[in-house]
Amino acid sequence: MERDMGNLQDRLSDLPDLVLLNIMKFMNAKHVVQTTVLSKRWKNLWKSSPNLTFDSSDFLWVPVFNNFVSWVLSCRDNSVSIHNLEFRRKGCIGPKILDEIMTYAASHDVQQLTIVVNLVLKQDFVLPSCICNCPSLKFLKLYFWFPYAFASHIKLPTSFNLPTLESLHIKHVTFSTKENGSVEPFSSCSMLNTLVMDHCYLLDATKVIHISNSRLTNLTIRSFRGDGIAYEISLSTPNLSVITIKGLPDHKFSSMRNLPDLEKVKIEVSWYENFPPNHLVLISWLQVFAKVKILTLSWSTIKTLNVLLSEFKNLCAISRGEQMQLQH
């Protein structure tokens, strides 16, 4: 043990680059670049890191953060592909730097891309086609946030062409309509198994979004009543096993007949005193999910249903269905 501990420092300084780069994987880009001053060996090591996490909260001045991001992308070793790139920014952002990051990521075979930003737009922002057609992408998270100024949209393409994508998380984006008037954005993503749609919108005339993915097992939908037009969600997903719905009920589901493997449905209705949920939509969900094995209703969902029942002024008794498992 003594002998072992004696040369611990020597062996630490002999750690292979791969081990050191693996440690950098868990650090934000700013701290990673700081290792450049440790010694001559470390000076250029960070440039080979396949993982980049940019977080504006590491910076006192947001404009400095923007310049830092561009600088890192221009300095790093161009021959090293990107495994994981995360870009998180508080405060407002224009589309230019977003374009720059996505273009860089796509041209470096990115596998996992996370963008969480507050985008301020003077006109519609169309997601760069290099990202919508990126053959290496396995995980894509695009969480936008901008005040309810719906004069402009963050537009997704009519169809994603992402053959290896397994997990897609999108927030505050608008789907484009195909020439034939339908919306079916994910049908080319043949490996997709997890889909999270958080506050997603359709353009004016369309009323239905089709989700047709044979491998999809996990679907989460979150909506807020009143943010855009209510639409219908049509599922053609034979392997879907879990659906989670959050927010204020807004979008109805088409018939659930083609969901043989649906095992769990979780409903978490948000509760606002002055913003009553759309009971009709909530009840339509309960109807279409009637054959599910496990139904989980959050406390606020039960409260919402309870309010509805309070309209039955002469009601004496309610009995509970046997197949229903209630959790909160």
Binding site: D10, K30, H31, V33, Q34, T36, L38, W61, F68
Partner: peptide
Amino acid sequence: FFGVVNDFTPAEEAKCRQEHAWAFDG
């Protein structure tokens, strides 16, 4: 922590910091 011997001269280290000033903001 890593048993790194600083093989920069003070001038080299200062220059390195200067070149990577973005990362030392704040």
